[in-house]
């Protein structure tokens, strides 16, 4: 059978809007990052060498990458058990579970970040529990720490990991697990040798989304991380809107783009490696 051709007349409107409002601004960003002065008169790599020659800025890139990886690991820890639970649940329970997953996803990131301020603050929920159980004599400092930020990002990004993981795991043949059990494999072995490898494509799709959005979660990073923890997004905002150094802000932005792309390519590479294994 002949595959239908692309109808270019129908694709053109969105294509043109994307060229004008998406591709053009991003190319402009790249162009501005290659300028030396703030009046954008002189071309040069000075801002790139300034960024990568400074240990502080290299540290910011490294911290941003680490934050993304930490968010992926933290969400994975809960996502797999939740996905297994989802697949074994009755259709009714599954419907409720989808609501439970979608509600936080559709609730504004600003609101979810705000919730974590209430939870992690000096007088917040965690400290109330810790103090009343006598686990600590003084309130713990959770806001403006990396631990607090990772905790918050774990909840904020969890639906992004869960949805693709669940959709892949639902397509798996339930007989596979039964077969592995009939052959004498325990639950742990069945999970690590059957479910985990087969659901890897879903995990990769989820990990890509979690990594990308954790790296760029400006509001959560600035509100929960505070001024002491600097990541690429807050650096971009500060350079563009406070210092007004556009070329340098552009360098930071292109670096963020490349950092996220590098992470996504790593994950895809991991996926291909896992499949040929």
């Amino acid at each position: 059978m002949r595959a239908a051709a692309v109808d270019w007349r129908l694709a053109a409107p969105l294509g043109i809007v994307y060229l004008a409002l998406f591709a053009a601004p991003l190319l402009l960003l790249l162009g501005i990052s290659l300028h030396v002065d703030q009046d954008l008169q002189q071309w040069g790599l000075d801002n790139w060498t300034k960024f990568w020659g400074d240990a502080f800025y290299r540290g910011v890139v490294w911290d941003t990458l680490r934050l993304g990886v930490a968010a992926v690991l933290a969400t994975s820890l809960f996502a797999w058990p939740l996905a297994v639970f989802f697949c074994n649940a009755s259709p009714r329970t599954q419907k409720i579970l989808i609501f439970i997953i979608l509600l936080p996803l559709l609730t504004s990131v600003v609101i979810r970040t705000f919730a974590w301020i209430v939870i992690l603050a000096r007088e917040g929920l965690v400290n109330q529990v810790v103090l009343s159980l006598g686990l600590s004599a003084t309130p713990l400092r959770l806001l403006q720490t990396e631990t607090g930020l990772i905790l918050a990002l774990m909840q904020i990004e969890m639906p992004l990991m869960l949805l693709p993981l669940i959709s892949v795991m639902r397509g798996l043949d339930p007989n596979l697990l039964d077969a592995s059990r009939a052959l004498g494999a325990g639950m742990w072995r069945g999970f690590f040798r059957v479910i985990l490898p087969l659901s890897l494509p879903g995990w990769i799709a989820g990990a890509t989304l979690v990594f990308a959005s954790a790296c760029t979660a400006f509001i959560s990073q600035s509100v929960i991380g505070g001024a002491r923890l600097v990541y690429l997004p807050s650096l971009i905002w500060q350079q563009a809107m406070v210092v007004y150094d556009w070329p340098f802000a552009a360098v930071c932005s292109v670096t963020l783009l490349l950092t996220v792309l590098a992470g996504i390519m790593m994950l895809n590479w991991l996926g291909r490696y896992a499949r040929t294994d």
Binding site: L21, L26, L29, L209, T216, S253, L256
Partner: peptide, 11 residues
């Protein structure tokens, strides 16, 4: 997938 923060500054 592309970090929209970079896109925001670009716009």
């Amino acid at each position: 997938i592309l970090p929209s923060l970079a896109y925001g500054l670009a716009t």
